[in-house]
Design a protein around this nucleic acid. Structure first.
Length: 292
DNA sequence: CGCCAGGCAACGG
DNA sequence: CCGTTGCCTGGC
């Protein structure tokens, strides 16, 4: 495949949510559940493979069927998104494995990306399956069954701290069949979010990340502290002051404030607002943060 | 040492 | 509804 302006896998990985990807020389390796994915770039040519074989995985993972131009035509009146589309060419929304996505974001509370990566790598080494590819060692993402069986102490040995309880409660729902991925796929955004937030350890923000990155809810608009800052910078005029009085960018949003702002952004951007979120998120971190 | 980082739950007003 | 508090961990 030829690298072109519609798709740049490296910038998509750098956007932050593809936690378990590593670069060696001119190749990237990453985990999608029980698959190890790989792509290599030489000159302007890019080549994809995987183990076990999953033909055209890049098509699925990077949502290459989505027509970015069409999607952004919904944002043409927005104050900044048309600029961001030009500036971050090739940035895609990604599909993650739903189980992996739930655990990944359950690990994300009150910490940073590098720590999330450490936790997930530790969990994979302890509870995943070892694979050798190109003389390098990788681990598949742990099966829910193994996380469910693990003791809190075993989970804690992966440096997840108090998040161990959340990991177990998610794994329990999935293993016992109290909740299925299929059910979440079929539900509408609102219903799926309610189900997710009823699980211990999953609040508003983490639910929105899971919905957007793994459950086909492209309207989901996660608001972390960075997105809160972006809203404060660019979308203050949209805020109904009768509902949300002040946004202090140093303070975390209350549940109610989160709901109001997230709904406001969904109304503003519509069905593919998650794409807007992806570009805004990349932009605000890219410009306001010194390093990743 | 103290403070902070891509939230959450539990609790008191 | 709001605000406060504690929480594992590693980096600074």
């Amino acid at each position: 495949m030829l690298l072109d302006s519609k798709f740049n896998p490296e910038i998509s990985i750098n956007s932050g949510q593809m936690f378990l990807w590593e670069k060696y020389k001119n190749s990237w390796y990453g985990t999608y559940g029980s698959l190890i994915l790989k792509f290599s770039i030489t000159n302007n040519e890019i080549e994809f493979c995987s183990a076990p074989k999953f033909d055209n995985w890049e098509h699925f993972i990077f949502r290459l069927d989505d027509n970015i131009q069409n999607i952004f035509s919904n944002f043409s009146n927005d104050i900044i998104l048309p600029k961001l589309l030009k500036r971050y060419t090739g940035l895609r929304l990604i599909r993650q494995d739903p189980h992996q996505c739930m655990i990944s974001f359950a690990c994300s509370s009150n910490t940073n990306i590098s720590m999330i990566r450490t936790m997930l790598k530790n969990l994979s080494m302890k509870f995943g399956i070892k694979k050798q590819i190109d003389n390098k060692i990788f681990f598949t993402f742990p099966a829910m069954k193994n996380l469910y069986k693990a003791s809190i102490n075993e989970l804690c040995s992966c440096s997840v701290g108090y998040r161990a309880k959340a990991i177990k409660s998610i794994a329990e729902k999935m293993v016992t069949g109290a909740l299925t991925i299929d059910e979440l796929y079929r539900c509408k955004y609102d219903d799926a979010r309610k189900i997710l937030t009823s699980i211990y350890g999953i609040g508003n923000k983490i639910a929105d990340c899971i919905l957007l990155f793994s459950l086909e809810k492209t309207e989901a608009f996660p608001i972390d502290v960075w997105m809160g800052r972006a809203i404060f910078m660019y979308y203050k005029r949209l805020i109904d002051n009768r509902k949300v009085t002040i946004i202090n960018t140093n303070k975390k949003l209350s549940d109610n404030q989160y709901s109001i702002l997230s709904e406001m952004m969904r109304n503003h951007f519509g069905k593919y607002g998650g794409y807007a979120q992806q570009y805004l998120f990349y932009h605000i971190r890219n410009t306001k943060m010194k390093k990743w």
